[in-house]
Design a protein around this nucleic acid. Structure first.
Length: 589
RNA sequence: GGACUCGUAGCUCAGCUGGAUAGAGCAUCGCCCUUCUAAGGCGACGGUCGUAGGUUCGAAUCCUACCGGGUUCACCA
């Protein structure tokens, strides 16, 4: 909205002081001062050889002559406050009115696609609050990238093999007596998770017994009968033992059914699943290639390493001495696989910040291997969700289960809606849709409004709020506008000649006009919290307007028509913005 | 110990490419529904921006040191 103004300022600075490449610090005027935009003039004092006030005065007077958008100015110390005429606001609004998807760049099939990996669950236990943050971030970042016109391929990698998986398999074999999620009447992921816990309890007992016989804890763990069975099971799995494979398939299928139910509730979906049982063999030949190129080196014992000490990192193992692969090997292979599977120009990993080092190393290795796309890899490193007491610990039973939390959110939405008497006239079906919309909206906003990179605290004792800076606040603002629009009937025509913009109206347009740039910046920074913050500001400013100006009973019919149009734009921006966060904007609540 | 990261109101968070008197929400205490949905609006209360230096006309923001939290440095994934 101020690009023309910046050009005018540059011209002025050149004329007055001969500054060629001026650094223009133009910011929004703080609300305690008169004006819309403020130019900080301190940087020009050395050239102007005048006091801050005199310099600001000169620039202001010159701008009044040259820039038609500037209607007035005042000077406070070294700050030149400029008041804008209505023209830039009017043209900003004109732009929104002609574009129903204003703020979102439509899909451009000519642009290369982007890939986003997120979720990445283990198939031995259900999803928890940490996965929820991961899923919401991955989904939202995907939507943000789509809002730049790119196609997005959403993928997850499922950790479906390994010792931890065999543990729940072994426990089920021992204690299951053939029961299934169906016979127990619980979700498959929870069902399998219970057996994982059962195994842990069994292991603890066996370790305790062995330690009583004098073994150290490490030795006891190695010698525990159940661990020996599990190691054997893993070997049987790797050699394709039919019985083990069948059990593995059966139990994983239970888990997937459970995961899919949770994904459905969260509204996330994936275009392709990568399974570790398939990808864990990848990467070995790439290590061989790199070995030939001298990027890796082989030690005497046969293991293969890369020396990253020149890059300030350590030496890293990429292949064990027995030739089997490690986590890094797989990730190298999987990345290469993905770029051959799909035409894409970037790959974003949504993974917790505990793995910062891993990804630093991974990206560096891929770069050294000479892949040009290595520079487009990024790690959206998000902070853990902590409890007030610290980290969630499954052993202490403090993990917040994803399904339980969603249930609680829906129940909370129900309780509040009923208390406020908002459900009259809604069918049971409509009610349950509403509770889901509001409960999930509250949870999603609660998580996404926080800077992803920072760790955040969640207190399960205090339920997530529905008042103040919350999802339901945005939803409420949207619903209230929809109510107005339903009652507005056929608004007549209006033109700018009919309208004298009130301050509150200017504020709304000013805020609204930032929407497209906020979305683009949030996409570039992979930061949904920017969108959340914007939506909150917008809703707050609109509510301030709503409080003092009547839309439907405006002073003139033209004014009413204008305010209806303005309200519709706000509702549209709220709806599209919330959609970027995976939040549904209800039409009534 | 090395590396990375965080420290802002009682609590949860904004602000960080340097700019004016550091902002929200929750909580606490008031006020506003015969007018478009009060899940709303307005006000009060609440801060030596971890500490100490430095750079600068100007520092919550940049630099250094220290203090305090977290993560990570596996032939686990």
């Amino acid at each position: 909205m101020n690009t023309g103004l910046e050009a005018a300022i540059a011209t002025t600075l050149k004329e007055l002081y001969g500054i060629e490449q001026a650094n223009i610090d133009l910011q929004e005027t703080r609300k305690e001062f008169e004006g819309d935009l403020t130019l900080v003039v301190f940087p020009y004092l050395k050239v102007s050889r005048l006091s801050p006030e005199a310099t600001a005065e000169d620039i202001g007077a010159s701008l009044m002559r040259q820039a038609s958008d500037v209607s007035a100015y005042n000077v406070v110390k070294g700050f030149l406050n400029l008041s804008l005429s209505d023209a830039p606001l009017q043209s900003a609004m004109d732009q929104m009115l002609v574009d129903p998807q204003w703020g979102i760049v439509p899909l451009n099939p000519d642009l290369p696609a982007a890939m986003v990996e997120y979720s990445s669950p283990n198939t031995n236990k259900p999803l928890h609050l940490g996965h929820i943050r991961n899923n919401l971030l991955g989904y939202s970042v995907s939507k943000l990238i789509q809002a730049t016109g790119k196609q997005v391929i959403q993928v997850q990698i499922i950790n479906d093999r390994g010792v931890h998986i065999c543990k729940s398999m072994y426990a089920w074999k021992m204690f299951g007596n053939g029961e299934t999620p169906a016979t127990r009447g619980i979700k498959g992921d929870h069902f399998v998770g219970e057996y994982y816990v059962r195994f842990d309890q069994l292991l603890k007992r066996e370790v305790a017994e062995l330690m009583a016989e004098g073994y150290s804890e490490v030795d006891a763990t190695k010698r525990a009968p159940c661990m020996i069975h599990v190691q054997q099971m893993l070997q049987d799995w790797e050699s394709g033992n039919p019985e083990v494979m069948e059990l593995w398939n059966t139990m994983n299928a239970w888990v997937y059914e459970g995961f899919n139910a949770t994904y459905d509730r969260l509204g996330v979906q994936f275009d392709k699943n990568y399974f570790e049982s398939q990808t864990y063999v990848l990467g070995k030949k790439d290590i061989e290639t790199g070995l030939a190129q001298g990027i890796f080196y082989r030690r005497e014992d046969g293991s293969v390493w890369i020396d990253l000490t020149d890059d300030g990192l350590d030496e890293k193992l990429v292949l064990r001495k027995d030739g089997t692969s490690v986590y890094m090997t797989q990730d190298i292979g999987t990345a290469i696989q993905r770029f051959s599977d799909f035409q894409m120009d970037s790959l974003t990993y949504v993974v917790g910040n505990e793995q910062d080092y891993h990804f630093k190393v991974l990206f560096l290795i891929l770069q050294k291997l000479g892949y040009t796309w290595a520079s487009t890899l990024s790690h959206l490193s998000y902070g853990m969700v902590d409890l007030p007491s610290g980290r969630m610990k499954s052993r202490e039973g403090t993990v917040v289960d994803a399904d339980d939390l969603l249930d609680e959110m829906e129940a909370g939405a129900r309780r509040i809606s009923e208390e406020l008497g908002k459900v009259e006239g809604l069918s049971l079906e409509e009610q349950s849709v509403l509770y889901r919309t509001l409960g999930h909206g509250a949870l999603k906003y609660f998580i996404l409004k926080v800077d992803p990179r920072k760790r955040m605290v969640f207190n399960p004792e205090e339920s997530i709020d529905f008042n103040g800076n919350t999802g339901p606040f945005l939803q409420y603002t949207h619903a209230r506008i929809c109510s107005i629009l339903r009652k507005s009937g056929h608004a007549g025509p209006w033109t700018w000649e009919d309208i004298h913009l009130a301050d509150k109206e200017k504020e709304v347009i000013k805020c609204l006009s930032k929407f497209p740039s906020v979305v683009q910046k949030a996409a570039a920074d992979q930061n949904p919290s920017d969108v959340a913050g914007f939506l909150y500001d917008l809703a707050k400013i609109y509510n301030g307007f709503y409080q003092v100006h009547s839309v439907l009973n405006a002073e003139t019919p033209q004014n009413a028509a204008f305010r209806i149009a303005l309200s519709r734009q706000v509702a549209g921006a709220l709806q599209r913005g919330m959609a970027l966060l995976g939040i549904v904007a209800p039409e009534r609540m």
